[in-house]
Design a protein around this nucleic acid. Structure first.
Length: 547
RNA sequence: GCCCCUGUAGCACAAUGGAUAGUGCAGGACUCUUCUAAGGUCUUGAUGUGGGUUCGAUUCCUACCGGGGGCACCA
């Protein structure tokens, strides 16, 4: 429909003497301004040698009637607003209710995309920064799936390095500590016990001490199991787990090979990539002791990704924005070392979770762990959940907690920092994840009641399209737009509008009123229910049936 | 010092170069004998500063001011 209108306008412009025009149609922010609108007349008035309003009138006359468009209006300084005929909305309701493909688009059909995200380190805490990476990464993955691509999810984890030695040392001193807490303890005492901890670090690499090996294996396993429990709550299932101690160890070979070819250079005994040549930073890839830095490991990782999945069309890495400059350097080095991999790899940066007072640091121990945040929120949701009609209040409370956290992360542009405000995070009202869940549960509740009363939904194709239905109709476009930009918050914006329109309508309209219009209203409820369910799924937020 | 990101109501966030700059929280006034009040209705209040590009700038360019991040052997 959108394409038809745009093409008609383009042809009309040609007839009035404007060739090669770019016609952009948008959904006007306000529904009273139509279902589609364009500022084309404003843009090309000069080229057509007239004023915008006159051109708009001329274009509307030239275009004539368009099948499926009920009304065309000229408004404001010269906007042309198109109001769709009822059939378009009836079709949207039908598709929402019946088609598995509702909300999908074909922009990435047949493609295979890897998304790497979360990336917590074994032996350390899973903190709210990881929660952020997970929420954004999972939603980006699902947006890509909704665009027709096959997605493989990858997780890259640092199972070697100094943090491991600190954690093992901490555990040896204080066996009752969790691994994350043992790491913090080790960090705090590093200066005083530098030698002992550095020795452990070497022993981890060399496998020379059986006791250390045993602790290492146990810590790695327990950490990973711990993370897996969190992923289950968050709704993520990874296809590949990459490790610095495995794939990362291939990095040094690559660096040495390309050192000979002149891509890298030696400097003060270390092997560096001279990023300054390209307006970037120079960074160390191999230390003067010959150990790989994160940079070198990254090369091993990215080559491994394309070895594991050779037909990958694109590889996306989601991390915090503090790594943006680092990734520019690594990607530049990759252009020389593995050009095909570099070409298909994109770094997506998200903002950081910050306290009002400043940065969180796991070394300083002033972190809020992911699980403590989930637990606190679950606790906060507990009382309401017990009063709800849900069969499993405990499970519901956890779903609400996950929704509240993920929503707070996903509602804003991914690149921006989030100032973590505990009070606000614990609030389950207003512009929030639970608000979306509640609208969905209400719709599901009405459907359930209709079933028990034996009332069937049936769309009346002659009914007037309400604002609610006009909003619903925009869902696939909103999702496609969010997917194109890799910005989940664009979908959030639309869903909150839809939920708000539904709640407002729900307050005014008695749906199961026994009238002849009840089946039609029920069809709308069902379409809203299906759309919210699908939208929440795309955000990675659970959609409980009862609340 | 250099590079990147970012400045929108008291607070937290939206706005695809367009129409009267939206939403939530907080504040004020209403609303549950009616399908779920985690809801709904009404209400107060904002584009850091100076230039520029454009028919039109929160959006693009530029300078300044404020905030965050990065800049060699950590990840």
């Amino acid at each position: 429909m959108k394409a038809t209108i745009a093409e008609a306008l383009r042809r009309a412009l040609e007839r009035v003497g404007v060739s090669d025009a770019v016609v952009e149609l948008e959904h006007p922010a306000e529904l009273k301004n139509g279902d589609y609108a364009t500022g084309t007349a404003l843009r090309y008035a000069k080229a057509a040698g007239t004023n915008p309003r006159a051109l708009a009138e001329k274009l509307v006359a030239e275009v004539g009637p368009i099948e499926g468009v009920e009304k065309v209006e000229i408004a404001g300084p010269g906007f042309i607003n198109f109001f769709l005929a009822k059939a378009a909305f009836a079709k949207a309701i039908d598709r929402a209710r019946e088609s598995e493909a509702w909300g999908k688009n074909a922009s990435l059909d047949g493609k295979k995309v890897m998304v790497e995200y979360t990336d917590p380190n074994p032996f350390k805490e899973f903190h709210i920064g990881h929660l952020m990476s997970n929420a954004i990464g999972e939603s980006v993955a699902r947006l890509i799936e909704m665009s027709g691509a096959r997605v493989v999810r990858a997780n890259w984890q640092g199972d070697v390095g100094q943090h491991v030695a600190k954690a093992i040392w901490g555990k040896m001193q204080q066996p009752e500590l969790s691994w994350g807490a043992a790491y913090t303890y080790g960090s705090e005492h590093y200066e005083a016990h530098k030698e002992a901890i550095d020795t452990i670090n070497k022993q981890v690499y060399d496998h020379t001490d059986p006791a250390i090996n045993e602790l290492y294996e146990r810590g790695r396993r327990e950490s990973l199991e711990h993370f897996e429990a969190i992923y289950k709550i968050l709704g993520t299932k990874f296809d590949f787990y990459f490790f610095e101690g495995i794939e990362g160890m291939e990095g040094p070979k690559i660096v040495r090979e390309f050192l000979e070819k002149g891509v890298f250079a030696e400097s003060d005994g270390a092997v560096i990539f001279p990023g300054e040549k390209y307006g970037l930073h120079t960074r160390v890839f191999l230390t003067s002791k010959g150990l790989p830095t994160y940079e070198a490991k990254e090369l091993g990782l990215n080559r491994a990704k394309f070895e594991k999945v050779p037909d990958l069309n694109e590889s996306i890495i989601v991390t915090a924005s503090e790594q943006s400059d680092y990734f520019k350097v690594v990607l530049k080095a990759m252009e020389f070392v593995m050009p095909k991999v570099a070409e298909k790899t994109t770094h997506v940066a998200h903002g950081m979770m910050r306290f009002a007072e400043g940065k969180m640091s796991s070394r300083k121990g002033n972190v809020i762990t992911g699980e403590s945040l989930i637990e606190d929120l679950t606790e906060a949701a507990q009382a309401r959940a017990r009063e709800s009609r849900a069969a499993d209040p405990e499970g519901l409370a956890q779903s609400i907690a996950v929704a509240a956290i993920k929503y707070q992360i996903l509602k804003q542009g991914a690149g921006k920092d989030i100032i973590f405000d505990r009070e606000r995070a614990l609030s389950l009202e207003g512009d929030s994840g639970p608000y979306l869940q509640y609208a969905h549960a209400r719709a599901a509740g009405v459907m359930e009641r209709a079933r028990s009363e034996g009332i069937e939904a049936k769309l009346d194709p002659n009914a007037e399209a309400t604002d609610l239905v006009r909003t619903l109709h925009r869902f696939p476009d909103a999702l496609a737009y969010a997917a194109e930009k890799l910005e989940p918050h664009l979908l959030v914006n639309h869903l909150i509008e839809l939920a708000s329109a539904f709640n407002s309508w729900y307050a005014q309209v008695h749906i199961l009123d026994g009238s002849s219009e009840a089946p039609h209203k029920l069809a709308i409820v069902d379409a809203v229910r299906a759309t919210l369910e699908k939208g929440l799924w795309t955000l990675g937020i659970p959609a409980p049936q009862q609340m």
